[in-house]
Design a binder for these strands. Structure first.
Lengths: 228, 228
DNA sequence: GTAAGTTTAAAACGCTTGTTCGAAGGTCAG
DNA sequence: CTGACCTTCGAACAAGCGTTTTAAACTTAC
């Protein structure tokens, strides 16, 4: 009745990104891109299946529903991303000493950067989808995924406490809020100003350039003396 | 055939925010809120007209189409907001000397803050709508409004150049990008972390609290030495 | 070979969508 | 009152939506 595939990831670059790789993966890849470009509601199953070169009924056969497909698009990448961040934290904290703010920021930057440089562009698409879904405050993120990935926030909350012991809990929460908000939006390529004037930031989609300018800004914001 | 109303703004607080004020305004107010809560595509005209207490056909009669309604929701508030920012810039630059970074940031913060404190909550709704639409990269913002409000970006680009003369053009563009991205998201209340753990930032919706913590962070990021 | 699991095809389901239409009501000038 | 104009109303429109169902073809393993 259902799929249970853990197949390899073959290179697919055919005309309509169809043909190669199995049906489920093709659906996931196309859905990931279309959800970013048009949003969840404005993306129809017929658009997805048509561009993926599969039958309309395939989505409901493999995933059950459009909502479940959306959740599958997320779980495919979010788990590994957050696990990568926690692994970075583990490695940096191995010595037992407190991390510098820059080192702490980099434990998030590195996995996010790796995802953004995914040669199949699927990773970069996902970062944009994540940012978009966060802003849209989707029920999927509030309900299903919030419990699943609370370890991520707990680990970073503790690490920030140790890295910035001079700050109170409330001030720290605000700064984490600002820092992650900025990093998510930067990797998603949400250029607020380019909408008003064209190509304000050249090569804004080069992930290495993002990091080069983003990290000093975030670190400076986090390190500034307490305002209270 | 069409409306041409420039009426006053009566206080409306009836059971379903209907009854008082004219039909167009009621539609705009409800649409503003529903577009924020559910997004453009997921908000149907029937939801809007029902909550506004008007007939379904009223939207197409007064605004022409759903797209035109969305544009009207925007133009009602965006123009005054950006004009307010430019007026602040004019006032601060009156002396002829270069502005401090903090003063420059405050020329944007003050009008945005005033909008967020709109007693009818419509202004706060609009800031969230603006942020959401920026992330969604809506065609309306790319096409219609981008030409209309280019003065805003030009004025701020020049002001930032004068306030941070040590920075190159590219680096400056990045910092403006980060600063505005952060400020837009902060006023929109897009708390990235609250989705993972509940109530991470208490009273996150108090505009004064946002400013108190946001301004030092942004100013520090903008003021940090060049990374190149 | 048989059998099970996948995929395609085509059609239809009930439902919601944005939009349109003509008639009815309201207001105000003449 | 009459006539003109603006506004509202209920009903309907075609189109698209997610989903389900039928059946036939294909692949793969035993």
């Amino acid at each position: 009745m259902d799929q249970a595939n853990q197949t390899e990831q073959p290179k697919a670059n055919q005309s309509m990104e169809a043909n190669r790789s199995d049906t489920s993966t093709r659906i996931l890849d196309v859905a990931e891109r279309l959800f970013v470009e048009h949003g969840f509601e404005a993306t129809s199953l017929r658009m997805i299946t048509q561009q993926a070169g599969v039958n309309l009924a395939a989505v409901n056969y493999h995933f059950g529903s459009k909502d479940a497909l959306f959740e599958s698009v997320f779980t495919r990448r979010l788990g590994p991303l957050l696990a990568g961040c926690i692994a970075e934290l583990d490695a940096e904290e191995a010595g037992g000493r407190a991390l510098s703010i820059e080192a702490l920021v980099m434990t998030f930057i590195r996995p996010a950067l790796a995802l953004s440089k995914d040669p199949n562009k699927g990773g970069a698409m996902f970062v944009r989808l994540l940012s978009r879904t966060l802003v849209e405050n989707h029920r999927l993120l509030r309900e299903t995924l919030s419990q699943q990935y609370s370890e991520f926030v707990q680990r970073y909350s503790r690490a920030f406490e140790r890295a910035l012991p001079a700050l109170g809990g409330e001030e720290l929460a605000w700064r984490m809020h600002f820092a992650f908000s900025l990093m998510f939006n930067a990797f998603a390529g949400n250029d607020v100003l380019k909408i008003f004037v064209r190509s304000q930031v050249v090569s804004a989609r080069d992930p290495d350039m993002i990091v080069k300018h983003l990290v000093p800004f975030v670190v400076a914001g986090l390190n500034t003396p307490s305002s209270s």
